[in-house]
């Protein structure tokens, strides 16, 4: 099973949201990292066939997804970033409605909905109206609907937004157990989510993949660029202006800074082992905040 992206471009006026992307996704969990406006959401919409590319193709097992049509949608699960809902529907009714759209038989839809509500921790509130749900509960319901048809391709746009740490752990475990023999693509700003569950990471910037690979391999691209040093508290503001600071921890009169920089920033700075968050800061600290 493979999802092949070839020379994919999506242009809005003069703005290139996705710029000549090519990639091959096979079974596994892919983490899509990128700042706001990098083109992640657009790419996901193209993969879901709910936006037309300006140029390029996406093929599933060798056939264009547009030709695949309903058969492609039959193996697809999608959670959009701006997930809508019907406020007067109960959680159970909403899943039954989505099951009908996904072509599940009535009996199986009920059983599957109950299973998923249990897995996302909403079984007890299945008969409550969605309008009474918190943001996290709605998000969990969104995750459940995406998995209703046991999709072979699961695309999740910011699935952990609004989830508390406990819910995020539950979500990561759910995805991990679900992802066997499936293609799962998830985008997030929360680097640790990707770090824990993604087998491969796609780093996206200005509509292009700037890095692809296993987390360890990608992290190595910032080897020698992460530094730690201890400075007097008074020096911190000027250093913040000058350097890309990843982390800071105050200890009495001094502060330990984690600086992401090409060259040694201070005399007493020492190289530190990079992590995925350092990589994110290295590539996206200068990104403007705008959403596509």
């Amino acid at each position: 099973m493979e999802l092949r992206i070839e020379n994919l471009t999506k242009q809005y006026g003069s703005f290139l949201a996705v710029n000549d992307l090519s990639a091959v996704l096979t079974c596994g969990v892919y983490g899509l990292l990128g700042a706001n406006g990098a083109g992640k959401t657009t790419l996901m919409r193209l993969l879901c066939d709910i936006q037309l590319p300006t140029t390029g193709t996406i093929s599933y097992d060798g056939q264009d997804i547009r030709e695949y049509g309903d058969r492609y949608r039959n193996v697809l699960g999608y959670l959009p970033q701006d997930f809508g809902y019907y406020p007067d529907f109960t959680a159970m009714k909403f899943l039954l409605y989505m099951s009908a759209i996904k072509g599940l038989s009535k009996g199986y839809a009920r059983q599957r909905s109950l299973e998923l509500l249990d897995e996302v921790g909403l079984l007890q509130v299945r008969d409550k109206k969605i309008k009474t749900f918190s943001g996290g509960m709605k998000q969990r319901l969104g995750i459940a609907q995406a998995m209703l048809n046991d999709p072979k391709i699961l695309i999740l746009d910011e699935p952990t937004a609004g989830l508390d740490p406990k819910e995020r752990v539950r979500f990561r475990n759910l995805i991990s157990s679900f992802s066997r023999n499936k293609i799962v693509l998830l985008s997030t700003h929360i680097v640790s989510d990707v770090e824990y569950i993604a087998g491969d990471i796609l780093v996206m910037k200005k509509g292009k993949f700037i890095h692809e690979g296993k987390p360890d391999e990608i992290i190595h691209t910032v080897d020698g660029k992460v530094w730690e040093c201890r400075v007097a508290n008074g020096e911190v503001p000027s250093l913040e202006m000058k350097y890309n600071i990843g982390n800071m921890r105050t200890e009495g009169e001094t502060t330990i800074l984690r600086i992401i920089c090409e060259t040694k920033p201070l005399e007493n700075a020492v190289n530190a082992a990079p992590n995925l968050e350092d990589l994110y800061l290295y590539y996206f600290s200068d990104e403007e905040e705008h959403i596509i």
Binding site: R45, C48, I50, D70, R73, Y78, P80, G84, Y86, I101
Partner: peptide, 18 residues
């Protein structure tokens, strides 16, 4: 308006039966 279009249009019956 409520962003349900994406969910409906990615379902097997979203574009025809629904």
């Amino acid at each position: 308006t409520i962003h349900m279009d994406a969910l409906i249009l990615t379902g097997i019956h979203g574009r025809k039966k629904c």
